[in-house]
């Protein structure tokens, strides 16, 4: 939302409000369990068809959308064992071991984002300085009950909520931990709580690059270093095992293979 709001502002498009809805569903891929999303963006205001198309392009090419659907992330992986050894991962060989565990099933659910209009910030000359904040409701369903959470993200001067792009990678880091927790065959002497995943981001370019590339429909490749710290040593937890587990992580698969966008609508409502 904040990218679309920024593109609309700089393009003189009279966007008054915006909402985003995702339906999330589990999707079974070759040898892995992933997820797919159906997206609906609702634009409010006196939006012409030409402007709707421009904002649809901005929505498709926002930094997070690029990461999850267009393979924009350039990932460098490192593995460090608690014994101290560290190594960079190269491309995965074809004969990685088959791991017995299963990644967590992704429950169906919905994500609804609403834009907080009064959080836009302007300078004394009336020029937008920060696009503002969004409130996002998450609802998931399992066999017995429904669960709900609220997440906030955006761009504001107060620093109380995170920007969307790092938040996406927080989900990636958490997903990596969850996947490794399930798939690494750890021995009795190894504690899963010794797992740690660190992600370092190259945030150069900032808002101008993000909104400019979104407006133009241009992919910008962004670098991320993911360091996976695992229990044990290279003999007890072989690098091929770690690599095989990473290759089944749902967010990693989205970053590297895309394909999670099952349907997309951008409408004026």
């Amino acid at each position: 939302m904040v990218t679309v709001v920024g593109v609309a502002y700089r393009g003189g498009i009279p966007l008054e409000d915006i909402e985003v809805d995702f339906e999330v569903e589990p999707v079974e891929g070759p040898g892995s369990l992933g997820f797919g999303v159906r997206e609906k963006v609702t634009l409010k205001g006196n939006i012409s068809e030409g402007d709707r198309v421009r904002l649809q392009r901005a929505s498709r090419y926002c930094p997070v959308g690029q990461a999850l659907t267009k393979g924009s992330m350039v990932i460098e992986d490192e593995v460090q064992w608690r014994s101290g050894e560290i190594t960079a991962l190269s491309a995965a060989p074809a004969n990685l071991p088959v791991l017995e565990g299963a990644v967590p099933v992704i429950q169906p659910g919905t994500v609804h984002g609403s834009y907080l209009l009064d959080t836009k910030e302007y300078d004394d000359d009336g020029v937008m300085q920060h696009e503002g904040e969004a409130k996002v409701y998450i609802t998931t369903r399992n066999l017995t009950h429904t669960s709900r959470w609220t997440v906030m993200a955006g761009h504001s001067s107060a620093g109380l909520i995170p920007p969307p792009f790092p938040s996406t990678h927080a989900g990636w880091a958490a997903s990596t931990v969850a996947t490794l927790s399930r798939l690494l065959p750890l021995g009795e002497e190894q504690d899963v709580r010794e797992l740690q995943v660190e992600v370092g981001l190259n945030m150069s370019g900032g808002r101008e690059l993000s909104q400019g590339s979104a407006a133009e429909g241009r992919i910008v490749h962004r670098n991320a270093v993911r360091r996976v710290i695992v229990p044990g040593n290279p003999r007890s937890v072989p690098i091929e095992t770690v690599q095989a587990a990473l290759g089944r992580d749902p967010i990693t698969l989205a970053y590297t293979e895309g394909g999670i966008l099952l349907d997309e609508q951008v409408v004026v409502g």
Binding site: I106, H112, I138, S167
Partner: peptide, 29 residues
């Protein structure tokens, strides 16, 4: 900024949304 994510269990309560939902929520924002 901290986040707590939980992993889906067929019958288990969750401390937070599944990690993938955090990424999708960020996409929405």
């Amino acid at each position: 900024w901290p986040f707590v994510t939980g992993i889906s269990g067929l019958n288990a309560d969750m401390a937070g949304p599944p990690a993938q939902y955090l990424s999708v929520a960020a996409w929405a924002a």
